[in-house]
Structures are given as structure tokens and as C-alpha cells.
Amino acid sequence: MNIVNRFLNLLCLSGFEHARDHWRSQRETAVILFILTFWFLYQLLFVLNSLDFIEVQTWATDPLNALIIVLTSLYMIYHAELGVQVIIEDYVSEKRSQLNLLYILRFFRICVVVTTLISMFFLVYEN
């Protein structure tokens, strides 16, 4: 598990992880998310003055904010996939349907990753 692999995992460009890597990734993403989500909470409570479109757009377009927002979204869905994967593996014992559910889960994650990257790219690029 080097830095390149972790980057690919974050972008959802690799397959389901080996149980050993899964365990470690789940904890790493948890610690990273603890910082990122509390940053987001701080922004919501103490930085943003309103939730009007112009205010939110200006805030999200700031390059540093945009980078942290992208990381937050990617890490959230990464950690969520790792967690829901465990739940599916625990409660769905039939192998075929277990695998199907994991693919559906992966599909949702790919949608979120693509949506986040495209949205934030155009948001920063066009403004």
C-alpha cells in the first residue's frame, strides 16, 4: 500500500480491497474525515454568513476551499463504501446477491466521485 495505491483507492480506480487493506483504510479515512468534516462544520457555523447562492458559490470557488471540499466528498464516500461493504457482508450470506449488492454500492460510489470531480472542476474553472 504505497501512496499511489491510496490515491487510486480514493478516486475509486481500484477494485475492492483485501481485508487487511480494508481494515487499515477504514481507520485512516476515519481519522482524515474527523478533521475534514469538522473543518466543514466550522465553515458552516463560523465562516459562511448565509446559504444564499452567491455566498456559497464564492466560498466553494476559492481554490483552497474547493480542494478541501473535493477531499471531504471523496473521503466521505470512500469511508461510507468501506462501512456499508462490511454491513452487506455481515447480513447477506448468499454469495451471489452479496456480490450484486457490492456492485450496486460501487456504482453509487462511482456516481458520487464523478459528480464531485466534474462539479468542482467546472465550478473552479468557470469562475
Binding site: A60, T72, M76, I77, G83, C111, S119
Partner: peptide
């Protein structure tokens, strides 16, 4: 955790609505 999974999906929809402009954000 499952509820936050749904919220994470919603977060990306919110980001897309900001990128798509004022009407979709509304």
C-alpha cells in the same frame, strides 16, 4: 453510518447544484 452514507450522496448532489447555477441550487 448508513444514514451518513445517504448524506454523502446528497452532499455531491448539492455540489453539482452549485456548479449548475442559481436555478438548480434553488
Amino acid at each position: 453510518g448508513v444514514l451518513l452514507f445517504l448524506a454523502a450522496i446528497d452532499f455531491s448532489i448539492w455540489l453539482a447544484s452549485i456548479a449548475m447555477g442559481e436555478n438548480s441550487y434553488a
